[in-house]
Design a protein around this nucleic acid. Structure first.
Lengths: 288, 288
DNA sequence: CACGACCAATACCCGTGCGGTATCGCCGCC
DNA sequence: GGCGGCGATACCGCACGGGTATTGGTCGTG
């Protein structure tokens, strides 16, 4: 009697399939996304459920929904798949000829700090080439988690630094950016509730992790350039860290918002990084 | 022309194989550990190398060694496999009927803090059953990383809290525990170098992550009970947090070691935990 | 109320690839 | 020089992943 009979181990393929189904909540579309037919996908999910001994989906012939366990697995599977992807990427890059590091940062944020950091690090003995990836909001975190970047500049509380090692570099207050000549523009300071209360200038909507924009009023925005242009046109306002004032044109006005949460720029890296270059970069950053 | 031809995606099976080979540095033993024959294992590693486009092992017909990329993959693969295992376990437990949490802590450490925490949490409204796993040094960290525990008490700097969210609970100095009547026992304090310099009482060797003990002098030790017994017998001494004095018998003597690093007890949990029970437990702990 | 649309599950088939046994090639060591 | 140890290669069989065709059940809808 060969007990159980099933192989208990879960494969990444199954996790990828499950994530696709859980996100689409539709076997057909998920199969399409995975470039495969629907029946094998159904079977694979059933097999996963058997392996785990757990019901992951409520099936009602008309639609499917995640069970409690299913939504736990969705979250866990994403981080597990990120870790696997990171393993691939970091291994590939460790074998690459050139030993550079990849630093991810939101385009436009902490511009001065970033250039000072790069200069200071380049002057260090034994420094290697730094490839800078400038990207949209929320992306540096994902790049770091999936091994596409070795180190990143993040901004609490906007970015979540959970799961990384970090060093605080700089803390600053936030300001609201208004079109020049706006009625509120000559106030000495504003509160968050006042900013939210005024309805003629909506707050912009940033894309989420999935790339989609949340619903609601306000223009969709992908980067600071877009944002500041929209503000200059009188179509939006936004609360941003005050260091962004460097990038404003004279058709903007800024007003401090003392009760908005302070923004801390941190340098973050994967907790088990053994790279000398990352360590040097972090040390340089903390000494700025 | 169907470009590449290989499936780029890495499966957990391959990672498990590689970890076994990298740890054993011997295909035969690794295959045995994996309960399979050696040839398929060789092939699987070659396939992994092709997939990644990277040489992972230096083969010299007599022995094998990790390349630079190989040791990167070993580290990354371990954390990725931990994440996959955590996904399985947390999903299984999310489907379980009883909604308890599992708390891991080193047996014997922070005994008083732990019992106060459990009492206080049990008194909270909406508290659930807490299963306490008392385990050896270094284990809570692994339990947390692989999803066997939901929350843990760790001790910096002994445990590495990298990759977890933590809250500091308590900081204390360390003391050296000596057999009663030892020549140094009546000193008001000792320095680390003095402790290391005296050679009649060796420091014990704790097991590493793999369960093996490092080489060197001194007795092998698995828990504090063993340790204190050895000390009482005059066969060892040890530097430990002072709160462990509760567990000493009167055949021990303790002397403060002011320059030993302070030990901070922290409560730690996986960064993306959404469990109300874990959140309540953490909140309770910080209020103690 | 019957019919069609929709969607997941089932039935069945085929090919790939994983794992097994047997063997080779290579190197170090009595 | 021969033997032993170890990884690679050769070859084979079967289990499993993936494909097509079809069923079954449940909504809308005329």
């Amino acid at each position: 009697m060969v007990s159980a009979g099933y192989d208990e181990r879960v494969e990444t393929r199954e996790l990828r399939y499950f994530v696709a189904v859980a996100e689409e909540l539709h076997f057909g579309r998920a199969a399409q996304r995975l470039a495969m037919a629907q029946p094998p996908l159904s079977r694979a999910i059933q097999q996963l459920e058997r392996r785990l001994g757990v019901v992951l989906l409520h099936r009602t012939a008309r639609a499917i929904a995640l069970t409690e366990a299913g939504s736990v697995l969705l979250r866990e599977a994403r981080t597990a798949l990120d870790a696997v992807e990171a393993a691939e990427r970091r291994t590939r890059r460790a074998a690459g000829d050139q030993p550079g590091v990849v630093l991810a940062a939101k385009a436009g944020a902490s511009r001065e700090l970033l250039s000072k950091l790069l200069d200071a690090y380049a002057a260090e003995p034994g420094s290697v080439a730094v490839e800078v990836m400038l990207c949209g909001p929320g992306e540096p975190e994902i790049l770091l988690r999936t091994g596409r970047a070795d180190v990143a500049l993040l901004h609490r509380p906007y970015d979540t630094t959970a799961g990384f090692d970090t060093e605080d570099l700089h803390t600053e207050q936030q300001v609201v950016v208004l079109p020049k000549g706006h009625p509120l523009a000559n106030r000495a300071h504003l509160s968050l509730v006042e900013v939210n209360a005024q309805t003629d200038l909506p707050l912009p909507r940033w894309p989420g992790r999935d790339g989609g924009h949340p619903d609601g009023p306000g223009p969709q925005v992908r980067d600071h350039t877009q944002l500041f242009q929209l503000i200059a046109l009188g179509l939006a306002c936004a609360v941003v860290p005050e260091s962004l004032r460097d990038q404003l044109r004279d058709d903007h006005a800024i007003v401090p918002v003392p009760d908005a949460p302070a923004v801390t720029t941190v340098i973050a890296w994967p907790p088990h990084s053994r790279s000398k270059a990352v360590a040097d970069l972090v040390r340089t950053a903390t000494r700025l």
